[in-house]
């Protein structure tokens, strides 16, 4: 035991009482995470790209409606299509940028070393993940809603010509719009969870995009029963259960999940990695 005591002439401890008012609270942690999210330029780039991409793709889909109506092969499909699906048709590309945002929210802290400052301020750690999840959900939800609103406006002239403008008093319209927002928020939380588990930006983005985007396409070529079953429970196919799932959607082929099951599956993707991440976070060295 090496004990170091103050030398005789050292100033006696005067029990220096901090004069700065410091009182941590979850609301404070949440405000901190919100500020973190908005004070990075990369956040604004990603969000801007999300709005532009979703709106742009929707516009492109709407622009192709004329051609689809004229083509005898696609015309019947178009007739049964809900206009709301055309409006939110760009959400898959938005899913990419939002997944990147979710992963970077935590892996960016690991790669820069910021995580040590974060955990020094909140040594219990789990509130940080919860606050990140809330801040990310709010921001993603707002951006998804704005993107859909913009898409609705820019596609209106084209869709009006074919009586495909989604009716705002139709429950089906709100199911598709609401479901799209729900799915994008879930995609963000999924990558945040994966990022919390893996800690590396490259790893987290690769895993997230593989599960979200790549696997449904790849597995579509495998016609084994059990593989088809797995594929139905991947995020994008499962989202078809409440987003409509037209002929061209990736969920076609097998029997669809019910809308309620689809919602639950997506909730599981959002919450399970996040929960697992929070559990290992408590024990791991930062």
């Amino acid at each position: 035991m090496s004990t170091i005591t103050a030398t005789a002439d050292a100033v006696l401890p005067t029990a220096a009482r901090p004069t700065v008012h410091a009182r941590p609270s979850f609301l404070g942690i949440l405000r901190g995470e919100w500020r973190k999210l908005l004070s990075l330029r990369s956040t604004w780039w990603v969000l801007g790209a999300t709005v532009v991409l979703i709106t742009g793709i929707s516009l492109a889909v709407a622009a192709s409606v004329d051609a689809m109506a004229a083509d005898p092969v696609t015309a019947p499909t178009l007739a049964t299509t809900n206009g709301a699906e055309l409006v939110s048709g760009g959400f898959q590309i938005g899913m990419l940028t939002i997944a990147v945002l979710g992963a970077l929210l935590i892996t960016g802290e690991y790669s820069t070393g910021m995580i040590r400052s974060t955990f020094a301020a909140v040594p219990t750690r789990v509130p940080v993940v919860i606050a990140k999840a809330i801040a990310l959900s709010v921001l993603t939800g707002v951006v998804a809603a704005v993107s859909i609103a913009l898409s609705y406006l820019v596609t209106m002239p084209q869709l009006a010509a074919h009586q495909l403008v989604p009716a705002l008093d139709d429950a089906r319209t709100w199911q598709v719009f609401g479901g799209t927002v729900y799915f994008l928020v879930a995609a963000a939380l999924f990558s945040l969870g994966v990022g919390t588990l893996l800690r590396s930006s490259a790893g987290a983005i690769t895993v997230s995009l593989t599960v979200l985007l790549l696997l449904p396409g790849v597995l579509a070529f495998v016609s084994l029963n059990w593989v088809e079953t797995i594929a139905r429970y991947l995020p994008l196919p499962a989202s078809g259960a409440f987003l409509g799932g037209s002929e061209d959607s990736l969920s076609s082929g097998g029997d669809q999940l019910t809308a309620a099951t689809g919602l639950l599956v997506i909730a599981a993707y959002a919450l399970v990695p996040l929960f697992a991440g929070a559990v290992v976070l408590r024990r791991r060295d930062a």
Partner: peptide, 26 residues
Amino acid sequence: LDAKAVHTGRSARSHLRTMAATHNIP
């Protein structure tokens, strides 16, 4: 602990404000 325990994309003041927010430090 480490002069690099800061996100490089944030300004010094923003960094300090995110830290301060957790403890409701003015």
